[in-house]
Design a protein around this nucleic acid. Structure first.
Lengths: 240, 240
DNA sequence: ACCCGAATTTGCGCTGGCGCAAAGACAGAA
DNA sequence: TTCTGTCTTTGCGCCAGCGCAAATTCGGGT
């Protein structure tokens, strides 16, 4: 795959490049390394030297970390147009996460020195990179607050709603979370176990909120999930 | 208090200014607003319009957020030399946290437009600000991992060790956490309740790890706290 | 010196969610 | 079509930590 990607919407409106004139985007992408990553393959592993900044052109990636006693935590998924690796490439010696493609993907990247030069030359790129970092920090802050103050069902609802916003695709019966998502994956995003996720999803399926299958979740009633996530009183359901 | 602060160590080595030549530091600090904040007074409150970037010259601040049902979460404490507010001032409409002085403090700040101009003029300031954001993001990521995978005793140990690194003062019997710290404060940093914190601290006091009092914690054996935090086998204790 | 409100301590019953078991479902490979 | 490994479901006992009560301690204000 060598055709130009410069005018792909995911890149034009990407976190790093939105708001830059086309010629600047072309210049920045023109010095990027392009790397396809097949599904189930790793872009990089936790502990690798951190020397590149990345932007996802196509596909889906999962960022995860493993604790010293082997538990895995999913930090986040990456959708096309989203940047990552900025924090690590500023100063970190090694990457704190592993990054695995959950479907065939295409990743643009710049080594640290190149990215620093680009930021100096294009101050808007620097501002966009800072905003990306700021967003991530806010996301993590929200996760901390949720983990400290909310019960497991709310956390699962919130994780699903995040995925809906990030990678949801409207279909006839609702919004499909458009990536392979096991109960174990959801558990690792929300600080619980696959059995608890399974029980909660089964309950919600019986209640008509979701439809699910193997590695698949479709949200039939996002608004009802919001009432669970936000701990609001249930709205009257429309007559059947 | 109007005497110059430009050469205070906390500012010279501060997160935003370390590595900049003295003349640049003077220029940057020269256009900062300086604001004293008395103990127990708020610098700003959650929901206030976000338009300033801050750097703490003196004192101690507490950053906290309240959930919709009134639970408080302590995001972090701020020590002299640490910057904050960058994320919010980039784009956010309102601050996601409240900031209260836990002792008399002095805060330097710049409005958003000024800080953006300073970053353009001093690229190293921009890089330092980005690194500050990156550090915060990593801190929050670590908190998420801990909350998802660790039991309450380990989380309390970790929170104390963070405070030791950030604001610990060596005294004869160990390291004093040099700020007023209630059991409730520790609970809000670790996702538990003041009663659980009290039980754990009492147990550790009997075991000789800590000495504590009202709003006060001294760590007698930091290494033993590390073994708890990291879930390591206990080292043989030296003979009495 | 005294008072009082905040902070801390300690006991104990309760429960949300986990751990584990066991079985079933199913998608992809052969 | 069959097989197999992965994923999911469901039951049930257990327990880490919470909720609440009640009492104590103590530091700052008067």
């Amino acid at each position: 795959m060598t055709e130009p990607v410069y005018d792909q919407p995911a890149l034009v409106e990407s976190e790093f490049l939105q708001g830059l004139p086309a010629q600047d985007r072309v210049a920045i992408l023109g010095v990027a390394q392009r790397r396809p990553v097949e599904r189930d393959h790793f872009l990089l592993r936790q502990g690798d030297p951190a020397d590149r900044v990345y932007l996802l052109a196509q596909g889906r990636l999962r960022l995860s970390t493993v604790t010293t006693d082997g538990q895995e935590v999913i930090v986040r998924y990456v959708a096309p147009g989203e940047g990552f690796g900025v924090a690590a490439a500023l100063k970190d010696i090694t990457y704190p996460v592993s990054i695995e493609a959950v479907e065939n993907s295409l990743v643009m990247s710049w080594d640290r020195a190149t990215f620093a030069q680009l930021m100096e030359r294009y101050p808007r790129l620097a501002m966009q990179a800072m905003q990306t970092l700021a967003f991530r920090m806010r996301e993590m802050q929200d996760r901390v607050r949720e983990l400290q103050t909310e019960r497991v069902e709310r956390r699962i609802a919130r994780a699903l709603l995040r995925l809906v916003r990030q990678t949801g695709r409207k279909v006839e019966t609702g919004v499909l979370i458009d990536l392979p998502l096991t109960r174990q994956d959801l558990a690792e995003m929300t600080g619980t176990t696959l059995y608890t996720v399974s029980r909660v999803l089964s309950q919600w399926e019986q209640a008509g909120l979701v439809e699910s299958g193997r590695e698949r979740v479709l949200i039939r009633a996002p608004h009802r999930l919001v009432t669970i996530a936000e701990d609001l009183p249930p709205q009257p359901t429309p007559d059947k």
